[in-house]
Write a protein that binds this DNA or RNA. Structure first.
Lengths: 330, 330
DNA sequence: GATGATTGTGAAACTGATTTCATAATTAAT
DNA sequence: ATTAATTATGAAATCAGTTTCACAATCATC
């Protein structure tokens, strides 16, 4: 590969001048500029990012942490992030935390050594203080997941409202015995906590108490959903509707319900979350709460890039709105 | 961040010695070694990858090109690749080619500037010569997709056999009017070509001719599958079975067939490819050809790492075997 | 005891860029 | 016409590592 010295030699100029041309510095005569461009062209020159990085420049690489890429919600999110990054000439270093603290920390460390310019976290495992302590090495943006009370920049949806909308919809449809199934722990911080609030708020309006036996926590996969349905099936007193934390769980519930002989939504109404492709694929199609995944990705990258350029932000905590999608499962 | 000079100073030794300790060079006394470790520990020192990279060392980063991460086959593949990479202390720079040549080339260029040590390509857009020309900058491994007649290292499945198995299964079940639906072009190179061969081979054994009107090319998504089914529905003379290039297309066909009032497999038998989660989710569940995705990811990373270390390879072209999974759609 | 090989260490060069500092050549202002 | 400001360029320092080269010190061999 040609180096900046080669370009300097070929153009009969110094490395300094070449560097200035590359970086669009002022005070360079038009002729020399042309000379440099010509030499770069002929040599097929490309600046070495490692050398730039070393000199303290940015690397055009952002890190993205996801819990697991096989989860469609996250693969769609990463898709949006990668595309928006590419459009701004950035590359994406993708990393799966697998919901483990040590993996997450390993990746955050890349910020220290300037392997990435900034990081977008779509999930959070470590404690708030730990994550905030890394912000001194570079910008960290929370996307989708977030930490209550934190000042960190974040792009998220209004989960309280989302959960409220979903639950309200079930209540409006006449369901009164509503179960609740969440990905986190019921007392969790951030996203899940906000959802809980929305869920409870809707119930309060109808003066309904939560039935603790109908609360399922830490559920994520289709398989989890099937297990939930089995538990419900075994109950003496069953709910007539269930609010779930993702379309995958909802799908698992629907699938298992069918094979157990329950009718959806007559015996059990099910509402999903996310609006993934799967929601339309199963029968009956899932009512769900659509998350603006594409927009979340775009906004996240844009905000991170602004942070990198030290541009003033209109708002450090951006909230996107969700949409209730009514299909046949409720 | 502490630098190697800080460690040198703290330990009272030279940078050279510290570097030797870090890189496990021979001929260093035990005492000095201890001194260095102690200093590194106290300073929380971590070597700067950019500086190492610049000096011509490896970066512990591999690039992965996928056409589109939202395609479950590829998100499962990336999942496997990322995990195996992590286990060997490597990071993954993920990139979507979006099936576009220019994007692919953009990414291959990272090899030139040593941004990545090597690249795993799970899809191929450019011509063979172009891709091979990049191998002089670092190892490129083909995974899943491959180029006929090329010497490039590859991890793949025997697509000819896979397609043969699938088609044979349809024939054995008594179907004789078999349509064919592929992701590539029917005359394509590599993977798709091999599948065509297997498909034709099975037909030949039963002395059946291909019906050109029943060949669908360049189909990828669920949506594509639905469109294919609509076309079939409009035909005067319809096939009684269809071999597809992916479970997604197969799912689209099944979904649309149901809403058009066709019975699967009575009116039309459908066999998928990949064995993605979706195959078990739809009703009727898809018969399909299972690809060993996890193993492909593991083997690919292992082989690339061997190439990076210049280790001799048992085989540069590794072939994994597939498995016929019979469910209800055939 | 001289010679050669092995072991152990540091100074300095090197990787490929950017930036500081110095300086020359114009242009503008007094 | 002299001084000051602006424009334009290059030499050398710098970033944080690794590697080469030189040189001791220790050990083994004849």
């Amino acid at each position: 590969m040609a180096t900046i010295s080669d370009v300097a030699e070929k153009s009969g100029l110094s490395k300094a001048t070449v560097s200035r041309v590359i970086n669009n510095h002022p005070y360079i005569s038009k002729e020399k500029r042309e000379l440099v461009y010509k030499a770069m062209e002929e040599l097929g020159y490309q600046p070495n990012p490692s050398a730039r990085r070393l000199r303290g420049q940015l690397t055009n690489t952002i890190g993205v942490i996801v819990p697991r890429i096989v989860n469609p919600f996250f693969s769609y999110l990463v898709d949006a992030l990668e595309q928006e990054a590419y459009d701004h000439n950035y590359q994406v270093l993708m990393f799966q935390s697998d919901e483990k603290k040590d993996k997450e920390l390993y990746f955050l460390n890349l910020l220290k050594t300037r392997q990435v310019d900034g990081i977008i976290m779509t999930s959070i495992e470590s404690d708030r203080e730990v994550i905030e302590s890394y912000t001194k090495f570079g910008p960290i943006l929370l996307c989708n997941e977030y930490i209550s009370q934190s000042e960190m920049p974040v792009v998220r949806v209004d989960q309280t409202k989302a959960a409220y909308m979903g639950t309200k919809h079930l209540l409006d449809q006449g369901y009164r015995n509503i179960a609740y199934c969440t990905g986190g722990l019921f007392v969790d911080d951030g996203k899940d906590k906000d959802r809980n609030v929305g869920f409870q708020k809707a119930l309060n309006e109808y003066e309904i108490e939560i039935n603790p036996g109908w609360v399922f926590i830490n559920k994520h996969t289709i398989e989890d959903g099937k297990l939930v349905m089995q538990q419900i099936s075994d109950m003496d007193y069953r709910p007539d509707a269930i609010f779930t934390g993702s379309d995958e769980i909802a799908a698992g519930i629907v699938l298992e319900a069918k094979s157990l002989g329950f009718k959806i939504p007559e015996d059990l109404a099910v509402i999903g979350f996310d609006d993934q492709p799967i929601a339309e694929m199963i029968d009956p199609a899932l009512s769900t709460i659509r998350q603006p995944v594409k927009e979340m990705g775009v906004q996240s990258v844009d905000m991170l890039l602004s942070l990198l350029k030290n541009e003033p932000l209109a708002e450090r905590q951006k909230e996107l709105s969700v949409e209730l999608v009514i299909r046949s499962s409720t």
